[in-house]
Nucleic acid binder design. Structure first.
Length: 422
RNA sequence: GGAGAGGUGGCAGAGCGGUUGAAUGCGUCAGUCUUGAAAACUGAAAUCCCCUUAAAAGGAUCGCGAGUUCGAAUCUCGCCCUCUCCGCCA
């Protein structure tokens, strides 16, 4: 969340920023509630002060009588506090983070500027198949039985593809560990307060989050939640920072209302495995850390010899907690393009600098040189999202004879160099 | 899942329902002493909110939430967590 004082003192800026980001949050309403909330609080404070002075020592019977009504009044006002607070928080949490000055302002979600292209789209001298067709020919994914067992948008990875999942995990972990990241295998469930602190809204109408009935637990949609919550309510010494983590977890998403030809096969699914990087830094180091995360993503996917490009999210496409987001988009030869041509760029990684937005929600600080406590900056970035990486590997690696060449860098991890018909 | 014990400041650990934001010890920081250090002595020190140029004053916080009471760290209830034992299990 944003600092409420900052919102109060920079209302116009916050309003402009929110509308740039296509957020329909009502700042005037928020500020009105905030004022009411403070007024109520100071009223209650005054009454409590009255009560406290009387109660410091043993009061006389008359004083006790007088205090009874004060107590009643306090109780009455306190009852108003909770619903007001709730309403206030609900709106407060919707206010998006401020935006990096270099981010393109646009209301068109497809206006993301392309920063660089690594390797042009793969050329084929035959008609390339999409990953669903390839998987069927080579017996690599079982959709039908997954539907029987778990429902639509689930899948079993089979044969070489099952092995490739673990090869990719190992490859991603090694790449980041070499750069000083601490590896984790993280919980797949987290408490609501953690999700909310990070800017996710698990109970919202169109939530992407699965909730576990009769508990306050949610299935995580990304290890960003597990690793962002990791240091909740902690204060770092300056020498503790930066923290660089990489975590493996399963990710669960309801994908409410996202059925379309663009989400065929394992492109958009309810469950997948993802290796996620996370950093905690001091504010002056977060932009540098962001570039480091992007750099690792580029290293991983250039290692896999997959054509990709880097895009810089425009305001319309930024998630609420993010100050700036870069995506890697891989070339997927089998993915239908916007004008029905075959082949398109598609998101395979995403890295965001969330500055102090999440740290404020989770109360994570550090002590600066003078011992003053300040919020840390928090950043996340995909190392590899398995399902999407597999699509890119299958579709770009396909050969005229129907086999699939495995990127050299993965071979030591998976133990084979191509996938052929059985 | 069952039985028991417990959750208090950076840590350890007191705390009759009424100047207790909290004894004491350790640790931390500053000063005195010392060539320097140690020891000893003296002193400082929680977090958050509100208001303010600032200070002062005020409010909240003893796991979390509710209740009893004029008044709760202290009594009652619910929840969470930790430890010990039993059961179950990869």
């Amino acid at each position: 969340m944003l600092d409420i004082k900052f919102i109060r003192e920079n209302a116009d800026l916050v309003k402009k920023n929110s509308s740039d980001r296509l957020s329909k949050v009502n700042i005037d309403e928020l500020l009105k509630l905030e004022e009411e909330r403070r007024e109520l609080e100071s009223k209650i404070n005054d009454l409590r002060a009255k009560r406290n002075t009387t109660s410091k020592t043993k009061p006389s019977p008359e004083e006790i009588e007088a205090m009874k009504s004060v107590g009643e009044e306090i109780k009455q006002l306190e009852a108003q506090q909770e619903p007001l607070e709730q309403k206030f928080r609900e709106i407060w949490m919707q206010v998006p983070n401020i935006t990096h000055p270099d981010v393109v302002v646009s209301s068109d979600e497809d206006a993301n500027p392309v920063l660089e292209i690594f390797k042009e789209p793969t050329k084929f001298d035959f008609e390339p198949l999409d990953h669903v067709e390839l998987a069927e020919k080579l017996d690599l994914i079982d959709f039908d039985r997954a539907t029987k067992v778990s429902g639509a948008k689930f899948y079993y990875l089979k044969n070489e593809l099952a092995l490739l999942e673990f090869a990719l995990i190992q490859y991603a972990l090694n790449t980041a560990v070499k750069r000083g990241f601490t590896p984790f295998s993280a919980p797949d469930l987290a408490k609501r307060e953690v999700l909310e602190g990070l800017g996710f809204n698990p109970r919202g109408e169109s939530t992407q989050v699965y909730n576990i009935e009769n508990t306050d637990l949610c299935l995580i949609g990304t290890a960003e939640i597990a690793m962002g919550g990791y240091h909740m309510d902690e204060v770092f010494e300056l020498s503790d920072l930066p923290k660089k983590y990489i975590a493996v977890s399963h990710c669960f998403r309801t994908e409410a209302g996202s059925y379309s030809k663009f989400s065929k096969g394992i492109f958009r699914v309810h469950q997948f495995t993802k290796i996620e990087m996370f950093q905690y830094t001091t504010p002056d180091k977060s932009e540098q850390a962001h570039l480091e995360l992007l750099d690792i993503e580029k290293e991983i996917f250039s290692g896999l010899e997959i054509p990709f490009r880097v895009i810089d999210h425009c305001t319309a496409d930024l998630g609420a907690p993010s100050y700036r987001t870069y995506d890697l988009e891989a070339w997927m030869p089998g993915k239908p393009g916007k004008h029905d041509e075959k082949g398109d760029w598609a998101e395979i990684t995403s890295t965001s600098n969330c500055t102090d937005y999440q740290a404020r929600g989770l109360n994570i600080k550090y002590k600066d040189e003078s011992g003053k406590k300040e919020y840390v900056h928090m950043l996340n970035g995909t190392a590899i999202a398995i399902s999407r990486a597999l699509i890119a590997i299958l579709e770009n690696g396909q050969q005229a004879d129907g086999s699939i060449i495995i990127p050299k860098i993965l071979r030591p991890y998976c133990g084979f160099d191509k996938i052929s018909a059985k």
